[in-house]
C-alpha cells in the first residue's frame, strides 16, 4: 500500500527564520494522525506549507503526495489533487454564497480530474446529502461565505466544505480551538463520518480534548519545529497530564551541545 503523504526531512521558514527543522511523517490510507505541540512549535506552519502558502520557503526535504512532488504544485492544484486544509481562521467573504462557492470549487476540482461539471440538480442533491450527513444548519449554507458566522459556525463550515470536496488528505489546523463542547462534538462527529479507508487525516491540535472524540491512530509531539516523539493514542493522555514542558527541556538539552 502506498502512503497518502510522505514527508521527509522537511525544513521550512518565513522571512529567513527556520520554523520547521526536519519533519518526517508518513500517513497511510485510512489513518488519522494527530499532531500536538505547544504554541509556536510549528504545527500551523506545517499545515500552511502542505497547503501551499507561498509566504513560506521550503529550504530542504521533500513531500511526496500519492507519488507526486507536492511542493511543485500551486495551492489550487494541491486542492484539486485532493489536499484539503481546514483553516484555523476561516476568512469572511461577503457577496459570495457559501453554497455556490462550493459548487465553483467542486467543479474546478472535477475539471482538473477530467470529470464533467456537476449540474445544478446534482449539486443541490449532493449539498442536501452533506447537510444531512454533517447535521449542518441549513441557513449557514445559504448565507455569504463565513460572513457573520460565529467562531463555531466557521469551524463547522470548514468541515462541511471538507465533506463536499471529499479530499484524500484532510489537514485540520486547530479546528477545535475556541469551540464549546457541543460544537466540538459536532465537528468531531463530522470528521468521524468522513473517515475512510482511502482517506488520511492530519489533525493538528493544542489540546488532547479533541482526541477524545476523534480517536487517532498515531499521535506526534511537535516541539521546536521537530517531531520529538510519536506513539499511540495513549500518548495524548500522557501529554495532557505532563504537559509539553518536559519535551521542551529535553529538546533544549539536546540542542545545547550543538550550540
Amino acid at each position: 500500500m502506498k502512503p497518502i503523504i510522505q514527508i521527509e526531512n522537511l525544513h521550512a521558514g518565513i522571512d529567513g527564520v527556520e520554523i520547521l527543522r526536519g519533519i518526517d511523517l508518513t500517513v497511510m490510507p485510512g489513518e488519522v494522525h494527530a499532531i500536538m505541540g505547544p504554541n509556536g512549535s510549528g504545527k500551523s506552519t506545517l499545515a500552511q506549507v502542505l497547503a501551499g502558502r507561498e509566504d513560506y520557503e521550503v529550504s530542504a526535504g521533500s513531500v511526496t503526495y500519492q507519488g507526486i512532488d507536492l511542493l511543485e504544485l500551486s495551492p489550487e492544484d494541491r486542492a484539486r489533487e485532493g489536499v484539503f486544509l481546514a483553516f484555523q481562521y476561516p476568512v469572511e467573504i461577503p457577496g459570495v454564497s457559501n453554497t455556490y462557492f462550493l459548487r465553483a470549487a467542486l467543479n474546478a476540482i472535477r475539471k482538473h480530474r477530467g470529470e464533467p461539471e456537476l449540474g445544478t440538480v446534482d449539486f443541490i442533491n449532493l449539498i442536501k446529502r452533506k447537510i444531512q450527513l454533517m447535521q449542518m444548519d441549513e441557513s449557514l449554507v445559504k448565507r455569504a461565505l463565513n460572513e457573520g458566522f460565529s467562531g463555531g459556525e466557521k469551524k463547522r463550515n470548514e468541515i462541511f466544505h471538507m465533506a463536499v470536496l471529499e479530499p484524500t488528505l484532510a489537514i485540520l489546523d486547530e479546528t477545535d480551538s475556541g469551540l464549546d463542547i457541543d460544537a466540538l462534538r459536532t465537528v468531531a462527529e463530522g470528521v468521524n463520518r468522513l473517515r475512510a479507508e482511502s482517506r488520511g487525516f492530519l489533525v493538528i491540535t493544542h489540546y488532547q480534548r479533541l482526541l477524545n472524540y476523534i480517536v487517532p491512530d498515531i499521535v506526534h509531539v511537535m516541539v521546536g519545529g521537530r517531531i520529538v516523539r510519536s506513539g499511540g493514542k495513549e500518548l495524548a493522555l500522557e501529554l495532557e497530564e505532563r504537559g509539553y514542558a518536559d519535551f521542551e527541556t529535553e529538546l533544549a538539552a539536546a540542542a545545547a551541545p550543538a550550540g
Binding site: 497547503a51 495551492p75 462550493l102 466544505h161
Partner: peptide, 10 residues
C-alpha cells in the same frame, strides 16, 4: 490563499 486552498485558481 483561503480560496485557492479550495481549488479555485489564483
Amino acid at each position: 490563499f483561503y480560496l485557492r486552498s479550495r481549488g479555485i485558481g489564483d
